[in-house]
């Protein structure tokens, strides 16, 4: 296996261009969290032409709803949720300069096309590896929508957060490539 590529958001077009489907990455720096309910609110702000609670330009959004931290913990368990549920919202965010999303599972054709157009990537973290992933999160603070509980938007500071490039800016898709390689007849 190849060595992981280290990345630190915000990412530029050139940073995104270096990532290919199948690459392993280690992210150090800031990630913003948002899932279903937060996306709905962000989308409503965009529709009204209002300012978002954080500038998405160059940033990565991590689709996660963590468990509550125990006393002394930064965050509870924090693995990725299914990305496909955010497909309806993602192209608009990419248009505004979001450089990538992190979740699990496959994305729609519209999102894959939008990623190609706006030079953004989709990364996956290992679904269900929530206790392991939480160890890479060093700081967590709520940025917006505290009333949403686990669905609030958080700003995370991570060190060597492990992820895999699923969709790159060239239209490659690790899910399709992988299945093609390993499927058997019968």
């Amino acid at each position: 296996m190849t060595m992981p590529i280290k990345i630190t958001p915000p990412l530029t077009d050139a940073d995104a261009a270096k990532l290919k489907a199948g690459d392993k990455v280690l992210i150090t720096g800031v990630l913003y969290t948002a899932r279903d309910a937060a996306h709905k609110r962000l989308f409503e702000l965009i529709e009204k032409g209002e300012k978002l609670p954080f500038d998405v330009k160059g940033q990565l959004i991590y689709y996660v709803g963590p468990t509550p931290p125990k006393p002394g913990q930064v965050i509870g368990s924090a693995g990725p949720t299914t990305s496909g549920r955010m497909d309806a919202y993602t192209p608009r965010l990419l248009e505004l300069g979001l450089k990538g999303t992190i979740g699990k599972g496959q994305r729609s054709a519209e999102v894959v096309e939008a990623m190609r157009k706006h030079k953004a990537v989709y990364l996956a973290a290992v679904g269900g590896a929530a206790a392991l992933i939480a160890k890479t999160i060093k700081k967590a603070e709520i940025v917006a929508y505290e009333d949403l509980g686990p669905e609030a938007i958080r700003r995370l500071e991570v060190v060597d957060f492990p992820a895999i490039v699923v969709n790159d800016i060239y239209g490659n898709d690790l899910c399709k490539m992988g299945v093609e390689k390993y499927k058997r007849d019968g």
Partner: peptide, 9 residues
Amino acid sequence: LGIGPMGFG
């Protein structure tokens, strides 16, 4: 089917 762990083959 070849889906594999996390769907990456």
